[in-house]
Amino acid sequence: MEQLLRRQKHIIDVAYSTAQELVWAGKHEEARPAALHALRFSIEVYGPDSLQLVPAYLLLAEASAGAGHLPEASKYLSQAEWLILRAPDCSAAVQYKLHRSLGLFCAAKGDLERALYHLANDVTSTWHSFLLKSLRAQQQVLKSRPETSLFTEDRAPREEPMTEAQQVEGIRVLSAILDIREQAPTQQPGETARVLHALAMLHYLLMDIPKAQELGLKAFELVKQLPQQELLEPLGHLLKLMNVEPSSPE
């Protein structure tokens, strides 16, 4: 029985990882069978009412929505939400994943107001703070080793480098929020600038400098028009790191 349980958990891991990689690659229809296998074995191992099923339900919902099967995606999201609501001790990380999935689903349906509710400002703030710390950590490394630069192969890694999953997550979530912010009937330029800044930092850390420059300049120009300009200094610093001289605020 122990060997069987280990094998089943291994199958869950393989099926989930395969489905996740296919979703990241935009192959949503191909991801659905693998995600479904992950769910079926999760039910068999953990039972139908376990929080351990939530990741598989959310992955199935994302794959289904990406493949255009919105009713199915809605069903899987409802199952995940029900499991979370029944667990008062559910972790913040699991709740974040649910709201992230609900937000992306609502965005896919064109329901921007509900999408913003689920992808609320604190999601943006969490990523913004995390990326600011990552950028500062990288700069500390470069200062301590002046012979290195962002592009040298032997540069020291950041203390807590982002995993591939975090990189994909950040780009997908922040890009979705930016699209929603820019399409919303009621514009909030301060929040839009914060998302742009976060995305610019993320692309800089991933060494996609042209994209980071484009987003950083766009954020800088937006912040210059705001009465509160607390983002000007960190944005200006980021642009200077990329050898871009922003124009002075009026």
Rank of each mutant, 00 (worst) to 15 (best):
M1A: 14
E2L: 15
Q3H: 08
R6V: 02
R7M: 10
Q8C: 11
K9C: 07
I11W: 07
I12P: 14
I12R: 03
S17G: 02
S17I: 01
T18L: 04
W24A: 06
E30P: 02
A31C: 08
R32G: 00
A34F: 02
A34L: 00
A35K: 00
R40S: 10
S42E: 01
E44Y: 03
G47N: 05
L51A: 09
L53R: 02
P55R: 02
P55I: 00
L59I: 00
L60Q: 04
A61D: 05
S64K: 15
A65F: 03
A67E: 09
K75Q: 10
S78D: 14
E81R: 13
E81P: 01
L83V: 04
I84F: 04
R86S: 12
A93H: 11
V94R: 10
Q95S: 11
Y96S: 10
Y96K: 12
R100W: 08
S101L: 08
F105I: 11
C106S: 15
G110F: 09
D111H: 15
L116N: 13
H118F: 15
N121D: 08
D122I: 02
S125F: 05
T126K: 07
W127Y: 10
S129E: 11
K133C: 02
S134Y: 00
L135G: 13
A137K: 04
Q138G: 11
Q140S: 10
V141W: 04
V141E: 12
K143P: 01
P146Y: 05
P146V: 07
E147R: 12
T148A: 07
E153V: 13
R155E: 11
P157I: 11
M162E: 06
T163H: 06
A165H: 05
Q166F: 06
I171Y: 09
L174W: 01
L174S: 01
A176F: 01
I177A: 04
I180F: 03
R181H: 15
E182F: 04
A184V: 01
P185H: 13
Q187M: 10
E191L: 07
E191W: 07
V195P: 00
L196Y: 02
A198P: 00
A198S: 14
A198N: 03
L199V: 13
M201A: 13
H203N: 11
D208E: 11
I209G: 02
P210F: 00
L215R: 09
L215K: 03
K218P: 08
E221Q: 13
V223L: 10
Q228M: 07
E230D: 14
E230G: 11
P234Q: 09
P234F: 06
L238N: 02
K240A: 09
K240C: 07
P249C: 09
E250H: 06
